Computed example of a mutant assay.
Amino acid sequence: MEYRKLGRSGMYVSEIAYGNWLTHGSQIGDDSARQCVQAALDAGITTFDTADAYAETRAEAALGSALTGVRRESVEIFTKVYFPTGPGKNDRGLSRKHIMEAIDGSLRRLKTDYVDLYQAHRFDYETPLEETIQAFADVVRAGKAHYIGVSEWTVDEIRSAAALAKELNVGLVSNQPQYNMLWRVVEREIIPASEELGISQIVWSPLAQGVLTGKYSPGKGAPAGSRGAGENGAKDTMAKWLGEDVLTRAQRLQPVAESAGIPLATLALAWVLQNPNVSTAIIGASKPEQIKENTKAAGLALEDALLKEIDEILEPIIERDPGKVDLCPSRP
């Protein structure tokens, strides 16, 4: 495993992080969750990403249980706040009330006194940004989080938040966007601004939710047990990747990976890590053996000729429009 600094902070994170969206508390049980977390630790992964809304808070609880007995200082735990965690009007968003209540709930479920990074899962258009950043600053000052970050915010939103965080002397160190060979909407605006501001990327969906593993073939249904066949939310979020042209071109990457002597999934993860503004790429494996395979991407340098070949294959289907940053349901 290799490690990188998170933004302009002094904290290191593992190049491959283990995340539990769609897995812990829903797709796999607690025993499997513990096995996967142990496999991640054995592979040198120290960074674990979750959110209070994942599996209706069960994912946080599963991660907390799986990390029981692990030396707290040896891992970096990330969680997020924004999406609903209950039926009430205040059980969501980025109001001071919800942030202060949500962090306590997350810490209780994660069985820890603090998280290393507390992230705004989306931008809240119904709460003043000043209120949100002040609340995050108070979470940090209370010792409940070391750093703060955002997820799927636009470049203007990130700049505004960074300015407020600087005034309050708290570390806004990260953004968590979707980023992979096919989805590059952060490259034109967000990554240059992040480099300027001392913010780095924590990448989700580096494998395009499995499409860049080669398991999905054009003209065939999604394999049984895969995310594309599931009913737990993944099927809808990955619909854009299941078109014939996308799947055909993804399959054309197989011989490219073979020529490099690595599996396609490893190639896709290594591609993301070639970007120096990326601190870590989140994997969401449901089986221990998948984790061991994916960590081979850490520290792997790809030659320019190989990167060019990837672009030539995928160019017609690469999404680069910065206006498509997440298309968040909270956005007016």
Rank of each mutant, 00 (worst) to 15 (best):
W204I: 08
W204A: 01
W204T: 04
P206L: 09
P206T: 10
P206Y: 05
A208R: 04
Q209K: 07
V211W: 07
L212F: 05
T213F: 04
G214R: 00
G214A: 03
K215L: 01
Y216T: 06
S217M: 13
K220A: 01
P223T: 09
P223W: 12
P223L: 06
A224M: 11
A229V: 13
A229L: 11
G230R: 01
G230K: 08
G233W: 04
G233T: 02
G233Q: 05
K235I: 12
A239K: 09
W241P: 08
L242V: 13
R249L: 07
R249K: 10
R249S: 04
R249D: 02
A250K: 15
R252W: 15
L253D: 09
Q254W: 13
V256L: 15
A257K: 02
A257W: 12
E258Y: 12
S259A: 12
A260M: 09
I262L: 14
P263F: 03
A265Y: 05
A265H: 10
T266I: 14
V272E: 07
V272Y: 04
L273R: 03
Q274M: 03
N275W: 00
N277S: 12
S279W: 07
S279E: 08
A281E: 00
I282A: 10
I282P: 10
I283T: 03
A285M: 03
K287C: 05
K287V: 02
E289Y: 07
K292E: 11
N294G: 09
T295W: 02
T295H: 13
K296D: 11
K296I: 08
A298S: 11
G299T: 00
A301E: 15
L306I: 06
L307D: 00
L307V: 00
E309M: 05
D311A: 06
E312G: 14
